[in-house]
Design a protein around this nucleic acid. Structure first.
Length: 695
DNA sequence: TCGTCCGGCGTTTTT
DNA sequence: CGCCGGACGA
């Protein structure tokens, strides 16, 4: 590595001496294709942030020419923070660290008009999408047994493979014998036509349209490829064919592509991710260099031994063996439980003891396959008054109230947005129901006008209701002015007052607690607008940017914004989440809840006769989250949708129990305790049960 | 137009 | 067991 003294103002010269040998090797390859196979906990982020700093500081590469793409805002943000730590704010200026989708939106903002959309396009989420599919199926007169979600899923899959509605019928994914494919074909065409007419796009379109843009206008692709001379892709194992084509477009003028990933942690195939992207990287890029990071800085040796054994059963993978310098005599443990309530009680009891010993609750994570497993755990945590945070679940912008308000904002911004218009047409109640709506829809179709324009031009066809319709369009018109004049949060506040939305919320719900929660969400919405304006600055197209940000931002980011400062220190609370959400995180103590057949691997995967290797990777991801202590649980029986079902320990771990890589403790018989301890435990346990019954 | 009742269905989900 | 969506009646 070249070392030279920079001017005295420079804080430091980036040195790679803090990296281990393979990490350093990876950081030093700047030109040409590079695959970094980064095992769990192997210092992946450290390696790529040093690599960027090395490029900028030691090779004087302009940060403006460097692009780092990740999947989550959180990952992008973390990478930026760590580069800034190394380089300082000034020298990292101009660096682009974005998610696939935020990069896509940036590109579309510049060039979407080339595809026949206007720049004030709306972005539709799943519920908006389903509304359109429902409509398509009604027109197609499809049998009611057809599942809208399945149709939508297929459309999404096609988009993520880069197949348009025109190409679908001729693609290898279209089966003429399959009635679903015929419904999907019709729905896909109808859906895409409508989106275009409504000047709206869905999440998949964000990338699909960029790829189409690149296909149809190679000079546009060339422009971006020349801007971004050095490209890095994080979590490469989770990329889909569409993202691959996007990357290929960006690298059309060079081959400076560094991808980072771990095929053993590929857990998003259900969203179209294609693991062969990482498995066959060198075949696509024959000049590629490959570096493996196998030293793990996270977990103890016994935990890694189990992890290695579990994942080694998978066939199509790149051989990797994680190792660590952290010796430990503490083996992973498998607990046998009676049922779900017992499971929750025992685990939370363990946590209470941890807490009583004055230890930090932020050290503990409870991981599970499916969100349906949360309930008994949460209940027990509440009863024991242990602070906790459940990650995931419903996203902020998916809540009804927030969706309603966003629909208003979308319509104000993009009058062609029919789905938003229909969502709020009768919210709050204006006495305009389906019959009136159908009338206008029919007329709009005849006149080839947008629904909104039809309301304005022909309010009279609503007869008795024409006054309500006029009031509505006037309201939207007046709100458009309000938003152009007022500050964003004030305009939103004004909108809520104008439509008397809080009163509507009260009317909708009987339980005062629910009303309270929903009003609170609305307040949070206004506050987020306040924060956004403060950060983003008023003026310009702030409304559009605000909506985009809301939709492209993950819910966790939103909440953490306030207490960003103590980002490094976890709060004193137990973390609950799915294996999927846990990827990339680590905890000293990890409980894997319900490591059972039909749960991990999941029943649905087994019954579909599908490949269970992804379920195994999920198990692997869970295990490799643990730094010091790993406890898995399984129940003899579990309540599923209100029915008790017999359960058995997962095939993923059972063989390794027999090989002595784990301890087995039967907690149903208190077999892990001495006689005296068991007596005391039983007494305490039943006492707490009695307490619960009384309260 | 709007409320209520019943039947079916229920994995994960970074955007 | 609980939610959502369709059907149906006031």
């Amino acid at each position: 590595m070249v070392r030279f003294n920079k001017c005295s103002r420079s804080l430091l010269i980036i040195s790679l001496s803090g990296l281990n040998a393979p990490q350093k090797q990876a950081a030093e390859v700047i030109e040409g294709p590079l695959l970094i196979l980064a095992g769990a906990g192997s210092g992946k982020t450290r390696t790529i942030t040093y690599r960027i700093a090395h490029m900028v500081d030691n090779f004087h590469i302009d940060p403006k020419t460097i692009l780092g793409v990740s999947f989550t805002n959180k990952a992008a943000k973390e990478m930026r923070e760590r580069v800034v730590t190394l380089l300082g704010r000034r020298r990292s200026r101009g660096l682009t660290l974005a998610t696939f989708h935020s990069l896509g939106v940036k590109i579309l903002k510049q060039d979407i008009d080339k595809l026949g959309y206007q720049k004030n396009f709306s972005i539709y989420d799943t519920s908006d999408q389903l509304a359109l599919i429902r409509e398509a199926m009604k027109i197609y007169k499809a049998d009611k047994s057809f599942d809208r979600k399945r149709v939508l899923m297929k459309i999404g899959q096609m988009k993520n493979k880069g197949i348009s509605s025109n190409d679908f019928a001729d693609s290898p994914y279209f089966d003429d014998e399959d009635p679903y494919d015929h419904v999907t074909l019709f729905a896909y065409e109808y859906y895409q036509d409508k989106l275009r007419f409504f000047n709206a796009i869905d999440f998949d379109d964000i990338l699909f349209l960029v790829v189409r843009l690149f296909r149809e206008n190679p000079d546009v692709a060339k422009k971006y490829s020349e801007t971004f001379q050095y490209i890095m892709v994080d979590e490469y194992q989770d990329t889909n064919p569409l993202q691959f084509e996007l990357i290929r477009g960006l690298t059309m003028t060079h081959d400076n592509l560094c991808v980072v990933g771990d095929d053993d942690q590929a857990i998003y195939s259900f969203r179209g991710a294609d693991i062969s992207n990482i498995l066959e990287f060198e075949r696509v890029f024959p000049k590629a260099k490959v570096v493996k990071l196998e030293e793990n800085y996270r977990s103890t040796t016994p935990i890694l031994q189990l992890a290695n054994k579990v994942i080694a059963e998978n066939k199509a993978r790149r051989a990797k063996t994680l190792w660590s310098q952290k010796a430990s005599s503490q083996l992973p443990i498998l607990w046998k439980m009676a049922d779900t309530d017992h499971e929750a009680a025992v685990v939370i009891e363990e946590i209470v003891q941890h807490q009583a010993a004055g230890k930090h609750l932020g050290d503990i994570a409870l991981l599970y396959r499916s969100n349906t497993q949360v309930q008994p755990l949460e209940e027990q945590l509440r009863l024991s008054e242990v602070p906790y945070a459940i990650i995931g679940g419903q996203k902020f912008y998916e809540k009804k109230e927030i969706k309603d308000l966003i629909a208003y904002l979308c319509l104000i911004l993009n009058p062609a947005d029919q789905i938003s218009l229909r969502r709020i047409f009768n919210i709050p109640n204006r006495g305009i129901g389906t019959v009136t709506l159908e009338k206008f829809l029919k007329l709009a179709e005849e006149k080839q006008l947008s629904l909104y324009q039809t309301l304005i031009n022909f309010p009279d066809i609503a007869e008795k209701r024409s006054h309500s319709v006029q009031n509505f369009t006037q309201l939207i018109q007046q709100q458009r002015e309000s938003f152009s004049k007022r500050r964003l949060p004030e305009a939103i506040q004004n909108l809520i007052e104008q439509i008397d939305y809080l009163k509507f919320v009260e009317k909708q719900h009987d339980a005062p607690k629910q009303v309270e929660r929903r009003k609170n969400d609305i307040m949070q919405f206004i506050e987020s607008a306040e924060r956004f304006e403060k950060y983003h600055g008023a003026g310009g197209n702030i409304l559009k940017h605000f909506i985009e940000r809301l939709l492209l931002q993950d819910s966790q980011d939103n909440q953490e914004e306030e207490d960003d400062h103590d980002d490094d220190v976890r709060k004193n609370q137990v973390t609950l989440m799915t294996y999927h959400s846990s990827k990339g995180l680590e905890f000293p103590i990890v409980f894997m809840i319900g490591v059972e057949e039909e749960s991990l691997p999941h029943k649905r995967t087994i019954s579909q006769g599908e490949d269970i290797s992804e379920e195994r990777r999920l198990c692997y991801v869970g295990i490799t989250r643990a730094q010091e202590k790993l406890v898995m649980t399984y129940c003899k029986e579990r309540k599923i949708y209100g029915k008790m079902v017999d359960r058995h320990p997962s095939r993923f771990v059972l063989p390794f129990l027999e090989q002595g890589l784990m301890l087995h403790q039967d907690r149903t018989t208190f077999g892990h305790l001495s006689v005296e301890e068991a007596e005391k435990y039983k007494k305490d346990f039943f006492q707490s049960l009695m307490d619960d019954l009384e309260s």
